[in-house]
Design a protein around this nucleic acid. Structure first.
Lengths: 335, 335
DNA sequence: CTGTTAGCGCCTTCAA
DNA sequence: TTGAAGGCGCTAACAG
């Protein structure tokens, strides 16, 4: 369509062979400086760019990586993608993005469509609705792949994650230090290690401080915002927790709405803390303490890891990289 | 790496020719049903998938489109991408995503890297920092391209936009109806039609209601959040506006912070209205009236438009599609 | 230093 | 109904 200009054409115009042109373009040591310059300047003049399909076919490299995420309309993932892109660009690679919408079937179908050499490698954050461990066990043998954030822990594969357990423990302790006695836990991603680690951190912190863990203070996430809203109201009415620890961002809004409806002031009547990368919400709500994951850095590390694999360097490194999340306490509330 | 299984292999195993296999796979009428079935079942058994690089090279089609946006970590664009992906998947296409970070040079460099047939078409939302009209005038001749949201109006090209002028007019009227006399305008995207249309809508609404337009009530956006914060405080102190109309989401936070610092209550002391696709912020802040653009639909329409072009259908349709934004008034404030 | 040649995997004439 | 052959644009042996 656009191009029309290929190495054959360059070769003809310069009266040299196709191979010479190719080598000149690839800066081969076999070619004289003079020829290189002639080729390069004509290439520039004619606006030559190599046909990627042809190079791909020949070299079995696509200069393309794929990113598979549940969703891009999400603060965490969009930042992670930014981190990935930065590295990809540095390596001159293109980035294909696929959204699974938490659908494990779609996840598999996207992934399978990438196994025929469309990409050099894959970065993936698995969907939360089904445990697909067997599938990925086979997959990692077929294609360079790095998991980030949402991983299958039992898998022998490259994984970039955060310290979900540790930061949850710390956050729960923070509440306890503030004098909270009855801390409810809003539970999400229960099928994934990340979600379960957050729960464990909470449980263990309670235990460490001699506070009894009560099952009825744990609320499971529902896809339906209305249900979450009503469940939180019920939770407030029946068990009167003095704090809410939300393990996923999606609980923040129903929690706030429930407080508003019940005329609870935050943080005077009830404290709220959430995992969240919603930067603006933090600023808008000085009463909300948040755990922020280093989303950008996770993307960055994951991509770096993938390129290490692709370049066959340092693959003997530790396969598990764990980054630190940050607990941001709201100064204005003193807690 | 993964594949190894190609039509040659299929042909050998079945003792037929490569050409026959190829035709069978493409469901050619020349091939007997029996042969087709043999080929297809073996293909399935061996998990055959065609090598994309080879098909691309042969057919000059990549089954890939590119999306170029300023940023994905943004409510509007991430939703738009979702809309684009939905359509792309329907057409069996893959989606490359590039972020310009509002850098016109990067925008050009990405775009240029796509002109050699790496993609079948491009969807783009231009960056705001430089007016690149000449560049795009040439570009649209070289590659199927659809602009969405951020466009160059003077260009004869496919464009999917929203009713920025109209909705700004309506929103300003809404303020006037609420009794506001001194409405400040927080101005962004001034180099782009969308931004200027928002300003015009505001100006014309004032005029239509006999309110004088005052230049000092218009505040330009700065990249520096702190500067915006301080400018808004100054604006409040010097001109005491009773309403703020923010033409971009990025002003919301400094505006809120300024109000907090000056102990202004929203909406009693000052009303705030903003263009925003920050769904959570709306719910968290019942006092904020918002203009929400149909981001998902814009992506959807843009992608549909591109595939129409690629399939050479309906190209004579109107090149300009304008979708409607929605003004969401906060019931709780009565304004 | 430069050129010739043989494919990468697929599709498409054209011939059988 | 099937097969043989050529070529998409590029690269990598191998010769000269």
């Amino acid at each position: 369509m656009a191009g029309e200009v290929n190495i054959k054409r360059l070769a003809q115009e310069l009266n040299i062979s196709i191979a010479t042109v190719s080598k000149a373009l690839n800066d081969s040591y076999e070619i004289s400086l003079k020829t290189k310059n002639r080729v390069l300047s004509l290439a520039k003049e004619l606006n030559y760019t190599p046909n990627p399909a042809a190079s791909n076919l020949r070299s079995n490299k696509t200069k393309t990586i794929a990113v598979i995420v549940p969703n891009v309309a999400n603060n965490f993932f969009s930042l992670a993608i930014k981190g990935i892109e930065e590295i990809a660009r540095k390596y001159g690679h293109h980035v294909l993005i696929y959204q699974t919408h938490e659908d494990a079937e779609m996840e598999k179908s996207f992934t399978n469509s990438l196994l025929n050499g469309r990409v050099d490698g894959i970065l993936t954050s698995v969907s939360s609705n089904e445990y697909n461990s067997d599938y990925y066990r086979d997959l990692v043998k077929k294609v360079p792949l790095v998991f980030f954030d949402r991983v299958y822990e039992s898998l022998d594969a490259f994984k970039i994650t955060t310290d979900d357990y540790q930061i949850s423990f710390t956050a729960t302790e923070h509440f306890i230090d503030c004098g909270c006695k009855s801390i409810a836990f809003l539970y999400g991603l229960g099928k994934l290690p990340a979600g379960r680690a957050r729960l464990s951190g909470y449980q263990d912190a309670l235990e460490a401080h001699g506070i009894e863990f009560r099952d009825e203070l744990v609320l499971d996430y529902s896809e339906d915002e209305e249900v979450n809203f009503s469940n939180i109201k019920t939770l407030f009415k029946e068990y009167k927790p003095d704090a809410l620890f939300s393990s996923i961002e999606e609980f923040i809004i129903p929690a706030y709405m429930a407080c508003a409806e019940l005329k609870f002031r935050i943080p005077e009547d009830v404290k709220i803390l959430s995992f969240s990368n919603m930067s603006s919400a933090k600023l808008l709500n000085p009463s909300l303490t948040t755990i922020t994951q280093p989303a950008f850095e996770i993307g960055n590390e994951a991509a770096k890891c993938l390129f290490k694999i692709l370049n066959k360097r340092g693959v003997d490194d530790d396969k598990d990289i764990v980054l630190k999340s940050v607990l941001i306490k709201r100064a204005s509330t003193g807690c």
